[in-house]
Write a protein that binds this DNA or RNA. Sequence first.
DNA 1: CTTGACTCTGTAGTGACTACAGATTGTTAA
DNA 2: TTAACAATCTGTAGTCACTACAGAGTCAAG
Lengths: 156, 156
Amino acid sequence: MKIGELGRVTGTPVETIRYYEREGLLAAQARTEGNFRIYDASHVERLSFIRHCRSLDMALDEVRILLRFKDAPGENCGDVNTLLDAHIGHVAARIRELRALERQLRSLRERCHDARDAAHCGILNELSQPPRQGASNEGGHVHGVHGGARARNAGK
Amino acid sequence: MKIGELGRVTGTPVETIRYYEREGLLAAQARTEGNFRIYDASHVERLSFIRHCRSLDMALDEVRILLRFKDAPGENCGDVNTLLDAHIGHVAARIRELRALERQLRSLRERCHDARDAAHCGILNELSQPPRQGASNEGGHVHGVHGGARARNAGK
DNA sequence: CTTGACTCTGTAGTGACTACAGATTGTTAA
DNA sequence: TTAACAATCTGTAGTCACTACAGAGTCAAG
């Protein structure tokens, strides 16, 4: 199969597949005479693996590690558990952080119920004060609030 | 005051201040003879405002909108409330999404309690299956799991 | 007068894609 | 046969909010 079909089967944009190849995650060994990439069932499985990991918000570096375990079937998989536990920890930490953030935002919102002139807006005035320190996500690798789980919106 | 002091006072890296200037958020009107930027108390307040907004994970485009309200004190501030409500909505949506993600990760983790060889690892096998569809964060602007609230780690 | 701290401009890197431009290859209809 | 069109190719630039330099200039203290 060619790249377009692989994309359709796995729900992955074609350009993302080529990006994974540049990143060394998924290489097509063969090409047609006309230089088109050729894939088979093993590529479908490998790409599904990658996309599943990404849908679980793992970084590509984490996926790379998991792929190494897949490629070495005799190895002990204890480190897989370790990696997953760490990832769960990061997600849990980010949830705690966002909950604190939500509380701060709601208390800020309390300061201005009615629309009036901006000069007396409690929200704008409060924002001019330095922020109080909150959770700071020291060791983790968890994103800010903007952006989103793009992997799943691929088709639209 | 010069850029270093402004950075110290507001807890902002110097290069970030220059970045905000390039982005049109905070301009130093004056320079010294030696071409150094000069700031005063109004800049401290404006930068504090920006940093406070960022510590609440607002995008710079959102901050830009709020700054416009600050710069037009006679205007009605109803849209400030609207913006903040939308932002709270995005944060809440991201929390829901991450909670669903955490459940999926914990159920995945259940599949392999003991370290054994990777060929029979329940986690690796499960990941090779296509993901089930979950929350997808359609309209929002909320990030993935990696990265983090960098604004607060500025000093280290 | 030299050392060192500070500042300047400009450019490149981050992560995980996304979006082109411009060329080539393959498929189908007239 | 030819023309249109879809699919693919390579390569580069853009996204966001910074961060990290390089290389040059400015300034205060010893």
